[in-house]
């Protein structure tokens, strides 16, 4: 029962290391259950048994026992040393990347992840990696602290401006594994979510060669009917605005822009198209295709009134096709 309570729902094991991690965790859970029962069980039993209102209640004068004290110093010390050594051992495996690992550079910034690959490709929030091959991330931040966390891999590493930190993993399970930002980084900290997309060899080859690949399911799941339908792979064709919606999500726009009128670090995009916008310097403009393009590629050019110039430039990060899709999508947000 306790095992179920504690770890019946541990995240998927997306790597081998996750398995070693789970074993150590389980060990600690059981050990804790034992000590909890010892202490709290002892307390409850004594409290019942030696109640003051029992027949002939009388306390015995005891001031201590060196033997007992020696036991409860020695036994925990030994156990703790074992736990420490086990923990350090797993930790070493988690942190020492094999020399032949495939390297990806990672830049964190408020509030999205950018991934730079050897072959020159760049992606935002989606990290494409091969399965069954060690992958090493070399990470830094453009602004404040972030932390790269993939629960399915049981790895986490802070991403620090002004220095490189690294993390590695070898996915053994295909599909999408969630990336969280685990170090508080400001307003949209909880929106800084990406995914590791672990690909089978053939798909990986196609992706590295710059080809379109079909839809990838969530790790541990089959493709849902909706995903199949929406991918176009199953024959159904997406509208341009629908494709734009996917780009919007994948590029991390949602961390700063709502589509329902609510406040985020950036202005809501609901109903912006065709309306007039006012800038911090007092200027005005009509929101049309060209204005949207400028806002996405050179956001600092004109800054909307009441907002900080914090939107990163997406020049080179969105293709012409993606941009067209995005514009269609924004236009559709009434």
């Amino acid at each position: 029962m306790f095992e179920k309570i504690f770890n019946g729902d541990l995240p998927l094991k997306g790597t081998q290391v996750a398995g070693s991690w789970d074993s150590l965790y389980n060990f600690l859970v059981w050990l804790s259950v034992f000590f909890f029962l010892l202490v709290v069980g002892g307390m409850v039993i004594f409290a019942m048994k030696y109640r003051a209102d029992r027949q002939g209640a009388k306390a015995k004068y005891i001031t201590g026992s060196h033997l007992l004290e020696a036991v409860w110093i020695a036994v925990p010390t030994v156990l703790l040393l074992i736990i420490f050594a086990w923990g350090y051992n797993v930790y070493r495996t988690m942190t020492h990347a094999p020399a032949d690992a495939y390297e990806v550079r990672v830049i964190g910034k408020q509030w999205l992840w950018t991934f730079l690959y050897e072959n020159g490709r760049t992606t935002v929030n989606d990290l494409y990696v091969p399965m069954n091959r060690p992958v090493k991330l070399i990470m830094t931040s453009e602004d404040v602290l972030h932390s790269f966390f993939v629960p399915n891999f049981r790895v986490k590493q802070d991403v620090v401006p002004g220095m490189y930190t690294s993390v590695w993993f070898e996915p053994t399970m295909p599909g999408k594994h969630r990336i969280f930002c685990a170090e508080y980084c400001g307003t949209s900290h909880s929106g800084m979510i990406g995914q590791v997309i672990a690909l089978e060899a053939a798909q990986w080859k196609a992706w590295s060669a710059g080809k379109e690949i079909g839809p990838v399911p969530q790790a541990g799941l089959e493709l849902t009917a909706a995903e199949k339908a929406h991918s176009g792979a199953a024959g159904a064709v997406l509208t341009l605005a629908e494709r734009g919606a996917k780009v919007f999500a994948a590029k991390g726009c949602a961390a700063c822009h709502s589509i329902d009128g609510s406040a985020r670090p950036g202005p809501t995009l609901k109903g912006v198209f065709g309306h007039e916008v006012e800038f911090g310097d007092g200027g005005r403009a009509l929101v049309d295709e060209n204005y949207l393009r400028e806002s996405i590629e050179r956001p600092q050019a004109r800054v909307v009134k009441g907002f900080q110039p914090i939107m990163p430039t997406f020049q080179g990060l969105v293709s012409e096709t993606e941009l067209s899709a995005l514009l269609a999508y924004i236009k559709s947000l009434k």
């Binding site: 991690w21 965790y25 600690l28 202490v39 709290v40 409290a47 923990g87 049981r154 790895v155 685990a182």
Partner: peptide
């Protein structure tokens, strides 16, 4: 004091989880 013992025991034991390097990596900042 009973309440303290129950809660503090759980607090203390989970402290050992957090002190354990490998375990800490996954659960820290969560």
């Amino acid at each position: 004091a009973f309440g303290f013992l129950q809660l503090f025991t759980i607090g203390g034991l989970t402290g050992v989880f957090l002190a354990t390097l490998a375990i800490n990596v996954h659960v820290t900042d969560t």
